[in-house]
């Protein structure tokens, strides 16, 4: 859309619904392998100029913190900012339509040929490759966290709870989540004093949730 961007007002110029749909359709059809954030940024910030860098990052922050996929959450949030709930719906449709159509076609074909050894062999290859890709993506996203003892402890506890004890995600989120947020509570000296505690008894969530209290007390005593 040709819009006068020079006014400098907070409200961006009204963006057409078709434009929103087509833009997200292209992102949905070309983004692969979990790298959707780069595609979104390139399209929404650089090419279209619908959001500035700061607004993009704040939308991404919300999309990542809330439940749901980054790609669809971003389409909903950005679509809503551009044209309200209708914009959100249109952006979501554009984002999911290409992939959903292809997956559905593949799924129907798979249902008809699931006993075909060639199909299975190809999917065994894809599955193995996915493990490699997921490992790379996880390590890449987690790079910042691996330098912090608290973070590594939270990561290890989470993996053990889910993969080893097979605890339900609900339980993990409601035990590790509050403890993790508490460890990073505002102005708490967690960085300095929390280190020992998270290192020595992070496995049992009930004791871990009790410990930061005493630790905080100790820490403030030291200061």
């Amino acid at each position: 859309m040709i819009a006068p961007a020079s006014t400098g007002t907070e409200r961006p110029a009204r963006v057409g619904l078709v434009d929103i749909f087509v833009t997200f359709l292209i992102i949905g059809a070309t983004s692969f392998g979990g790298g959707v954030v780069a595609y979104l940024r390139n399209s929404l910030v650089i090419k279209k100029g619908w959001l500035d860098e700061e607004r993009f990052l704040s939308a991404l922050e919300i999309a990542q913190t809330l439940p749901g996929l980054n790609a669809t959450n971003m389409s909903v949030i950005v679509g809503d900012r551009l044209r309200g709930p209708i914009g959100a719906f249109i952006a979501f449709l554009g984002m999911t339509l290409p992939g959903a159509t292809l997956v559905m076609v593949l799924g129907v074909l798979y249902a008809a040929h699931s006993d075909n050894p060639a199909v299975n062999a190809a999917l065994v290859g894809v599955g193995a490759a996915s493990v490699g890709m997921l490992t790379a993506v996880t390590l890449q996203i987690g790079r910042k966290q691996f330098g912090s003892v608290i973070d590594v402890a939270i990561i290890v506890v989470t993996i053990v709870m889910v993969s080893y004890f097979h605890l339900s995600l609900l339980v993990v989120l409601f035990t590790v989540g509050p403890v993790a947020v508490f460890l990073y509570r505002p102005k708490a000296p967690a960085k300095v004093a929390g280190t020992d505690v998270t290192e020595t008894r992070p496995v049992d969530p009930s004791s871990a949730s009790a410990s930061p209290n005493s630790d905080a007390a100790k820490a403030s005593g030291h200061e």
Partner: peptide, 18 residues
């Protein structure tokens, strides 16, 4: 705090998904 606390939890969950 919410973001800093949830970040490592999410990494742990992604690792478990892998």
């Amino acid at each position: 705090s919410l973001q800093m606390g949830m970040a490592p939890l999410v990494i742990g969950l992604m690792a478990a998904g892998t």
